[in-house]
Amino acid sequence: MTSNPGPATSVRRGPVSGTRLGLALPQYGALADPAAVARFATAAEDLGFGSLWVGDRILTPLEPSDLYPGGGTPEHPYPNEFETFADPFTTLATAAAVTRTVRLGMSALTGPVYSPVLLARALTSLDLASGGRLDVGLGLGWLREEYFATGVPWAGRGKRLDAVLDALEALWTGDPVEHEGPQWRIAPSTVGLRPAQDPRPPVLLGGFSPPALARVGRRADGWLAGWMPKQYLTGLWSVALEAAEKAGRDPGTLRRVLRINPRAGTGVETVADVPPCLDVARELGITEVLVDLHYVAKDVDHALELAAEFVHPR
């Protein structure tokens, strides 16, 4: 996919100069309350957050094959919060209906487990419902049982993500649409539903390996990064920039969205530890930061209290 940041959107920014602050919508763990999403999204926009985000978790097996890369152990293979996880599309659609200016993003959908035809329909509908405020975030995920449960092979998942991106590009820009890939054949078809953003919503890719960052550079609009030491953020980003140059793209158009999850035992323990992370983000030229409060908030109201303290410190 070629770089396309989408149309300009009027966004009220938080108090951190030069940084657009994003907030994770209440979606999992103690905050998994679909009925509270509208209230939360409205309050977050009023507080000045510039973007709202969802994640993707399909199931939590009792004996998973893989440990959560963010600190899973054999005794606790993934955070307990993952055991309750609301649907990302419904959550974003609810937020789209009650907000006016915030960007709406995914950090990130497990791309290879979705049919691209159905995925394109859902994403296009979200982009239209939000008036062109959608950022599509895709990644490979880390849990092979989610692949097995959706009937998708674990092996070759990187190539499958590339195939999903190819199919989405065709569905968003072709007229008529026709696509032949290793997994799917889309017969010549009329698809009248087109995204509000021209020619498509921005596509951001997650991942923390050199191949993942090379894919970002070759074909995405930006990287969904996670908090890590500066040398790793810088080193991985250099892979994306080099790949963009080799692909004949302008590396300066690539975005970085840095996700920060305050959580005990991670070095970013509480919301009070977030400002130094923002200083690092500014130092590295990262202008978009997503804060996820699911691990430190007791409920939706507490999450809003923490968010208010964060953007308007006393």
Rank of each mutant, 00 (worst) to 15 (best):
R263G: 06
F40V: 06
T99V: 04
A149Y: 06
Y114N: 07
R256L: 02
G222N: 06
R215W: 04
A44H: 02
D292W: 10
Y232N: 13
T287N: 15
D279G: 15
R219K: 03
D162M: 10
S189L: 15
T124S: 14
A41C: 06
G206I: 05
Y147K: 02
T91I: 01
A155T: 15
W53C: 05
A214G: 11
V191K: 09
L52F: 12
L258Y: 10
A240N: 05
I286K: 01
E75D: 10
T253Y: 05
R200L: 04
R39A: 13
S125F: 02
P34V: 07
F89I: 08
P74K: 05
A32M: 05
A120H: 00
V177Q: 09
L161Q: 02
A35D: 14
W237Q: 00
A44N: 00
C277N: 12
A214D: 07
H312D: 11
E180D: 15
E242I: 06
Y68F: 13
V203L: 13
A240C: 11
D250T: 09
T2C: 02
N261W: 15
E146T: 03
A272Q: 12
P275E: 13
V257D: 07
E283F: 09
A225N: 01
P112E: 08
A24H: 02
D33Y: 05
Y232P: 04
P7R: 15
G192W: 12
Y295A: 13
E83Q: 11
V257K: 00
L236S: 02
D250P: 01
V271L: 05
P79M: 06
A264F: 13
